[in-house]
Amino acid sequence: MPETNDSPTESGLDAQTQRKVVRERYATIAAEKAEEAGGCCSSDDSCCSPAETAAPTDETARQLGYSESELESVDGNANLGLGCGNPQAIASLTTGESVLDLGSGAGFDCFLAAQEVGEAGRVIGVDMTPEMVEKARVNASQNDAENVEFRLGEIEHLPVSDERIDVIISNCVVNLSPDKPQVFDEAFRVLRPGGRLAISDVVLTAAVPHDVRADPDSVASCVAGASTIDRLETILTDTGFEAVNISPKDESDEFIRDWDDDYDVSEFLVSATITARKPEVADG
């Protein structure tokens, strides 16, 4: 059942509050990046990146697994230095496929996906923050990305028709949702039979400290809203996905431990790749 506005989530916040703090955080990031025009992450508002010692965006992206050629292939200010991995590395995109990016931000992963699927393919980015969608559309113009479009919407309520997508990608965004079963229900709905998920996100390896779990800043910065691997596997399987695989990336502690200045986030959080497939033929 979808979360109600006052129901508890993995974090210590109710769903309405969680959506509000996440939207405000990313609106701030979009505005600051517009002012910086490609500068470093803000020490106060970067998500999924070091707190007070934030590295330049390209350096952060290299830590997350992006290659030099990928970094050089996207113009403008699409790379915000956010995320916890590189979904392109697990998506195995091919020419002509349709791709949906959940929480597309300024569009960096969308533009990389567009290069893989070519002119015959199509990429849709969905983000709930108007400032991010506006920024991504400007970046699309700078990159001459005619096969990419950005839509305003929540990943729990995707503005996409049924069975239109071949591959869903996402980079450290599902953990921000207060209703993860609804996210994957929507993903299942919009995927074509045989379509697949290729997601980078964070998962819990231990209990989140109580004061962190209830902290709005920790929730909005990809720390306190994550699920365990077992819970995500159950959600995906119950939704109808098959070939579910969630693989922690042990080396991610090298950058995750720097996400907060007051505690070591890697003690209870790790980056992971999440893959799954919608069956070719639905049961029944």
Rank of each mutant, 00 (worst) to 15 (best):
D283T: 14
H157L: 13
N139S: 07
R277G: 07
E24G: 03
S271Q: 12
G195C: 00
S49Y: 08
N175K: 00
S104Y: 04
C84A: 15
G194C: 04
V74N: 00
D162H: 07
R19S: 12
K20T: 14
V244Y: 07
Q63D: 10
E119V: 12
G107S: 08
T129G: 02
A31F: 00
N143L: 12
L64W: 09
T228Y: 07
D215L: 04
I229R: 00
E72G: 08
E97A: 10
T4N: 12
D185F: 05
Q115G: 00
V174D: 01
F150L: 10
C84K: 11
D127F: 04
V223Q: 09
V265W: 07
D45G: 02
I155S: 07
A78N: 05
N143A: 10
S161M: 14
L232D: 06
F255L: 09
R192G: 04
C47I: 10
N171F: 08
L102E: 13
G105L: 11
V219W: 00
A136P: 00
T4G: 12
G81M: 13
G83L: 06
Q115I: 08
A34D: 14
E242K: 03
Q115V: 08
R122L: 14
E254T: 13
D144W: 04
C84D: 15
V167W: 01
D162N: 12
G153H: 01
C172W: 02
A243T: 04
E280G: 01
D264F: 08
V133S: 08
G96V: 13
D201M: 09
R189W: 05
L112T: 02
T275S: 15
D250A: 13
G107V: 07
V148G: 07
L197V: 08
D45P: 05
D238L: 05
T60S: 13
N79S: 05
R277W: 06
Y263L: 14
I274D: 12
G85Q: 05
R231C: 01
Q63P: 01
F255Y: 15
V22C: 03
R164T: 15
V281M: 12
D253H: 01
K33I: 09
D75S: 11
Q182M: 11
V203G: 03
P2H: 05
T234H: 02
V244N: 06
R257D: 15
S170T: 10
E280T: 04
T4A: 11
E97W: 07
A15C: 11
S266Y: 06
Q16N: 02
P50H: 08
V22K: 05
P8Q: 13
T95P: 02
G105S: 11
E186P: 01
G12T: 04
R164E: 15
A113K: 10
V148K: 01
D179C: 02
K135V: 02
A31N: 08
P159K: 06
G81T: 12
F268T: 12
T17D: 08
A198G: 09
D144V: 05
E267Y: 04
I246Q: 10
R122T: 15
T94Q: 14
R164N: 13
L71Y: 04
A78I: 03
T228V: 03
T4R: 14
